[in-house]
């Protein structure tokens, strides 16, 4: 009898929607959408090593050495459980840790700095709602001089332009949303742009592809020129973001497959359209 009542209660209780919702008044649900759009899960989870979600430890091989992502679960010792909202905002906005130490730009704060205050706050609310993991952080394995943290303030002066990103009033809302998704949350330019010898993005060629991307991959040009998305329709861009399908019917592999799985497939169709509108509006770069 009791089991039957419980079963009935279970049937009557509305099933909570699992996915994040950009229109939700609940900061946690809204924050989950920001989390997906910002693609936090991939880098902060050592999926191949069997690590807990967001417990860090994923190796990121770069030309500067191997970075190991930190634990961003609410664990008070190894995670960010003791971080205040202001600490968290400072990390994203100005690239500094809780003790004020400058952070390596493998954490893409040069993009996240452009996030709105509300998105930063909601992202923190969502992360705080996740299960804590006591996994200890692993030190990075970098070659000199890239591992010298004391040089980072110089790097930040050269390459960090603090946000948030302001809307361009001369452009439609959809374009502005697309720019925000590409330049702030999606941090697309972090992989799709070439970098100089110091690791700063070559802003003149932003999103024009990177012959030496993460994990040694060549990363394609997203500008509308002949070497980029010239032959792509707007629908092609949306389909690539939704399920990873390329115009020839092939499906993306490698790190972009992961981005589609964890991030762009979870966006609303309107947001994917906005991204396509923005990318198609960029000047082409050969």
């Amino acid at each position: 009898m009791r089991a039957a009542v419980l079963l009935l209660l279970g049937l009557l209780t509305p099933v909570a929607a699992r996915a994040g919702d950009p229109a939700s008044p609940d900061p946690v649900r809204r924050g989950e959408y920001v989390f997906d759009a910002a693609g936090c899960l991939g880098c902060h989870t050592n999926e191949k090593g069997g690590g807990a979600p967001l417990a860090g430890g994923r190796p990121l091989k770069t030309p500067f050495g191997t970075f190991y992502s930190p634990n961003i679960t609410p664990d008070p010792v190894h995670g960010i459980g003791r971080w205040t909202d202001a600490d968290f905002a400072r990390a994203l906005r100005s690239g500094h840790g809780r003790e004020g130490e400058p952070l390596f730009p493998a954490f893409p704060y040069t993009s996240y700095t452009r996030m709105s205050d509300r998105d930063v706050a909601d992202l923190k609310a969502y992360l705080s709602s996740r299960p804590a993991s006591p996994a200890a952080n692993r030190p990075h394995d970098l070659s000199a001089p890239f591992g010298w943290r004391f040089l980072l303030p110089v790097w930040q002066t050269l390459y960090l332009e603090e946000g948030p990103l302001k809307d361009d009033p001369a452009r439609p809302a959809e374009w502005n949303r697309g720019r925000y998704l590409v330049e702030a949350l999606g941090h697309c330019g972090e992989c799709h742009s070439p970098r100089g010898w110091m690791g700063g993005v070559d802003s003149a060629r932003a999103l024009a592809g990177n012959p030496q991307g993460p994990e040694g991959d060549k990363v394609p040009n997203l500008r509308p020129g002949p070497k980029g998305l010239a032959d792509w329709s707007q629908g092609d861009v949306e389909a690539a973001l939704e399920m990873g399908m390329l115009p020839d019917g092939d499906f993306v592999g490698g790190s972009m497959a992961e981005v589609v799985r964890n991030s762009t497939s979870k966006l609303t169709p309107a947001d994917r359209r906005a991204i396509a509108v923005y990318l198609k509006s960029l000047p082409s770069v050969p």
Partner: peptide, 20 residues
Amino acid sequence: QQAAGKACAACHEDFRIKKN
């Protein structure tokens, strides 16, 4: 189609070299 694409992408993600 999305589900079928996911099935294709699973192997491409792990075992295919980037094309571009």
